[in-house]
Design a protein around this nucleic acid. Structure first.
Lengths: 168, 168
DNA sequence: TATTGTTATACTCTATAACTATA
DNA sequence: TATAGTTATAGAGTATAACAATA
């Protein structure tokens, strides 16, 4: 038995999961609740929604946060390297960087060795904002997720997600 | 120890996960691989991508498949009920139904009891397509996921995703 | 007055082609 | 010639307001 609260009730027949249409009219979800693509999408939207709420004071989207995080760990990389690593297309990365640079969170610097490329670096304000953002994520966002799932299940979940992302 | 292949190597210090920028230049992923929002998004994209590939013969998107599935389990519901259950906004549901109806997979019928609403029903072709789609999903898509994760982990994953989607 | 399906519209994401300046 | 950053653009997905028909 790995389930905690939501245990199967009576016999071996699983309880048919139902969805709610705002009010009482319950619909049968059928195979939908067993379809990983469906539940993972719903879960992902919930997680992003909560991330946005927790991060509201700093006005950082999940994508923006990931850029700051990656830049902090990998200073001196160019736009293509950062974009590729995050799965962002280079053309779409431009306006994203424009936004972060105009907020003075990072700088673009022409590389002396290859004057085609822009070296990206966090500014002091960028580092300070990232530090505050990390705290918000850890204490408000991830903490709630760990509380919901339990620490070991949460860790197992991270592992499975990484496995799907990297090996599927 | 719950990890299978990717075991921690030497001491207690965890191996820093790295990302790859097309070729060899490895970047430090840092806290990104511990951020559920990040990994769940990457995993979700992979899952949808595979779903699309497996479903290519039938030309059904995940969203379209979910509509057919829900209609099969809940015949006689109207557009608002189906859309709300799937988290689709009513205005956006219209063109989606236009597409499925023009392919003769479902029908809109004015309800005799409430002539404002459209009762949705699968056509015979819709039911046949759904049956074929279910087989493709089970044998090609979900089978590969279960093979990757193992049956019990796969089941645990479904449970955790549902928990986040419903309770977070 | 409220609700159903619909239109129009806008904003974000994502995707591709092509330009420029460098190499 | 190839690559980095950029522009323009097009397509999905998602969001809100408002209208006609009906309740």
């Amino acid at each position: 038995m790995t389930t905690s609260k939501t245990t199967v009730q009576e016999s071996a027949k699983p309880v048919e999961p139902v969805g709610f249409d705002e009010e009482g009219a319950a619909l049968q979800m059928g195979e939908l609740s067993e379809l990983l693509g469906y539940v993972i999408k719903r879960a992902q939207l919930k997680v992003f929604d909560d991330f946005l709420r927790c991060m509201a004071p700093l006005q950082l989207s999940p994508a923006q946060f990931s850029v700051l995080l990656l830049l902090d760990k990998n200073p001196g990389r160019n736009q293509t390297e950062i974009a590729n690593t995050l799965g962002i297309l280079r053309p779409n990365f431009v306006s994203m960087l424009d936004g972060l640079e105009s907020r003075d969170l990072l700088t673009r610097m022409r590389s002396p060795s290859d004057r085609r490329s822009h070296v990206l670096m966090l500014t002091d304000k960028g580092r300070a904002t990232l530090a505050r953002a990390k705290k918000l994520v850890a204490t408000r966002h991830e903490a709630r997720l760990i509380e919901l799932l339990g620490p070991s299940e949460h860790k197992a979940l991270l592992g499975m997600m990484a496995k799907i992302a990297n090996e599927f």
